[in-house]
C-alpha cells in the first residue's frame, strides 16, 4: 500500500542498449539492492528472533517444565489448559482495560500536544524537550516513583485527595483504580514521546498547503481535521500499531506497581504477559503453557494490529477524501504555482 500511488515507481534507468554492461550492472543493482538493504534485519532476526520463536512454538506443544524440561509431545493440551484458567481471561480483560485507558487518551493527547507545539512558539526547543522528559525516566524508576505516590494508605495522591476533601482511593485494592494508576504511569512516560513523533510528521507537511487552506477561508480546526490529520496517516498508523503491540505486551509498569510483581492479591492488575511470566517462572513453572500463552497473545496482537491498521487507514483516508472534495487539489495547484 504505497503512500503515493499516483507517483511513478522507482526508475529502472530504461531505454539504453540491451548489451550495455553499465545498464546490466545497474539493472542488477536495482534488482538486488532492495533485498541487500533489508538483509541485515532478517539475518539478525533469524538469529535472535526466529530461533526463539520456533523454539517457543516447539515448546508449546510439549509437556515442558521450566526446570524439568521436555516430557513429551502433548499436542494442543497446553493451549486447552491455559484457556481453561479463569486467570487467563482475567489477564486478557485487565490488559485490554489498561490498554484502552492508556492508548486512547494518550494518542488524542499526543496529537493535541503536537498541535500546540507546532505553533510558532518562542523557545520552541525548550518546550519540545520538556514534553520528552518523562520518556528518559526508566520504567523501573517510574514504577518506584508511582508506587510510592499511589500507596493506598500513606501515599502522595491520597494525601492530596484528603487535603481537598476527596475520599481516599484504593489504588492497589480496587481493580479499576489500579488500572487507572498504571495507565497514568504509561501515559506519563509515553505521551510526550508520541507527541514528538506526531510533531515530526506535522513538520513534514508542507506549510503552504495549510496556509493556502487558511487563505481559502477554512477554519483552523477544519484545516486541522481535513488536511493535517489525513496527511499524518503513515505516522498515525505507526504510532497506533506500535502502541497496540506495546500496549498489549505491557509488563514493566504493572510489574513494578507493587513489590511482589504478580499483579495484586486478586490479580486485579495482572496483564497477560505477567500471567505468562507467572505460568512460566512463578507458581506453575510450566514452560509449555507459558509458550502457549505467548503464541495466543501473538495471534491476538496480530489480529488487533490488523484491525487497527484497517480502521486507521479508513479514518485517515476518508478524511483525505473530504479534503479532496473541499478543494485540496486546487490547493496543491496553488502550491505548485508558488514554487515556480
Amino acid at each position: 500500500m504505497p503512500a503515493q500511488p499516483d507517483v511513478a515507481a522507482p526508475p529502472s534507468s530504461a531505454s539504453r542498449p540491451a548489451f550495455d554492461w553499465r545498464s546490466f550492472r545497474s539493472r542488477l543493482d536495482v534488482k538486488s539492492a532492495p533485498y541487500l538493504y533489508i538483509a541485515p534485519f532478517f539475518l539478525l532476526f533469524a538469529l535472535v528472533g526466529l530461533f526463539p520463536l520456533l523454539y517457543t512454538a516447539f515448546v508449546s506443544v510439549h509437556k515442558w517444565g521450566l526446570v524439568t524440561g521436555n516430557q513429551g509431545f502433548i499436542g494442543l493440551d497446553n493451549y486447552q489448559a491455559v484457556l481453561d484458567q479463569p486467570r487467563f481471561w482475567q489477564g486478557m480483560g485487565n490488559t485490554f482495560s489498561i490498554f484502552l485507558l492508556s492508548s486512547v487518551p494518550q494518542i488524542i493527547l499526543a496529537i493535541f500536544i503536537a498541535a500546540v507545539l507546532d505553533a510558532n512558539l518562542r523557545a520552541k526547543t525548550f518546550w519540545r524537550m520538556g514534553v520528552l522528559v518523562p520518556y528518559v525516566v526508566a520504567p523501573v524508576a517510574v514504577g518506584l516513583i508511582f508506587n510510592q505516590m499511589f500507596a493506598d494508605q500513606s501515599g502522595f495522591v491520597n494525601a492530596i485527595f484528603a487535603n481537598i476533601g476527596l475520599p481516599a482511593v484504593g489504588w492497589h485494592a480496587d481493580a479499576f483504580a489500579s488500572h487507572v494508576a498504571i495507565a497514568t504511569m504509561v501515559n506519563f512516560r509515553w505521551t510526550g514521546y508520541n507527541a514528538l513523533i506526531v510533531l515530526a510528521a506535522m513538520q513534514a507537511i508542507p506549510r503552504d498547503i495549510i496556509e493556502a487552506a487558511v487563505v481559502d477561508g477554512a477554519s483552523r480546526l477544519r484545516t486541522f481535521f481535513s488536511i493535517t490529520i489525513p496527511m499524518l496517516r503513515p505516522t498515525l498508523i505507526f504510532v497506533i500499531i506500535t502502541s497496540t503491540i506495546g500496549g498489549l505486551q505491557i509488563f514493566d509498569e504493572p510489574r513494578m506497581f507493587d513489590q511482589i510483581g504478580l499483579g495484586g492479591n486478586d490479580r486485579q492488575w495482572m496483564t497477560i504477559t505477567m500471567f505468562m511470566y507467572e505460568v512460566g517462572w512463578g507458581n506453575q513453572r510450566n514452560f509449555g503453557r507459558a509458550a502457549a500463552v505467548a503464541w495466543i497473545l501473538f495471534v491476538v496482537i496480530v489480529v488487533i494490529a490488523l484491525l487497527n491498521y484497517w480502521l486507521t487507514s479508513r479514518i485517515a483516508s476518508s478524511g483525505a477524501a473530504t479534503a479532496k472534495l473541499h478543494g485540496a487539489s486546487r490547493l496543491l495547484g496553488t502550491t505548485k504555482g508558488d514554487r515556480r
Binding site: F45, V48, P52, L53, Y55, Y277, F298
Partner: peptide, 19 residues
C-alpha cells in the same frame, strides 16, 4: 517485520540465552 514486534519478548529469554 511488523509481526515480529508482536512476539512477547519475555519468553524469548531462554532460547536467546541458549544462543
Amino acid at each position: 517485520v511488523i509481526g515480529t514486534m508482536a512476539v512477547p519478548t519475555q519468553l524469548g529469554i531462554i532460547p536467546l540465552f541458549i544462543v
